[in-house]
């Protein structure tokens, strides 16, 4: 059977349908899709743009670990995770996660697990730019 895991890190615009199409499976009864986008403010402060930097080779490995855990734990039928790098404007897509599974509970839970774990383990860093400077998100206590 063809492996149903698709991991991509790209400095080009992310395409939702690319992830959604990838996870299509005739045994799937639920397809969960999470799309993370760049919001216009953080803690009341206006955000101008974001930059994502990745340690790409390791980030791909860590994303694959997440995908393999999902295939194993939730018997997912397909998973696609795409993460953006480079400069992003407000409203642009930063990350897409698509999971297909036989039933909706598994699809929802797996999708949530993927984004929650990504935020803890995958070596990608976000820099937020404001009118008066920039910060690396989550760097300091």
């Amino acid at each position: 059977m063809q492996e149903k895991i698709d991991i991509q890190i790209s400095d080009q615009e992310l395409i939702i349908d690319s992830c959604y199409s990838f996870v299509q499976h005739e045994g799937a009864g639920g397809n969960a899709l999470f799309v993370g986008s760049v919001r216009s403010q953080t803690s009341g402060k206006k955000v101008i743009k974001l930059e994502f930097e990745a340690f790409e080779s390791m980030a791909r490995k860590e994303l694959r670990k997440i995908a393999e855990a999902i295939m194993d734990k939730w018997q997912a039928l397909g998973i696609s995770i795409h993460h953006r790098t480079g400069t992003l404007a407000i409203g642009e897509i930063a990350v897409i996660i698509a999971v297909s599974a036989p039933h909706r509970d598994a699809a929802f839970e797996a999708c949530q697990y993927a984004i929650d774990t990504l935020k803890v383990t995958v070596p990608i860093w976000k820099r937020e730019y404001f009118d008066d400077g920039a910060i690396w998100v989550a760097a300091h206590p």
Partner: peptide, 10 residues
């Protein structure tokens, strides 16, 4: 060896 500061993807 690579230094990994707190990550903030997603």
């Amino acid at each position: 060896l690579v230094i990994i500061p707190p990550v903030s993807g997603g």
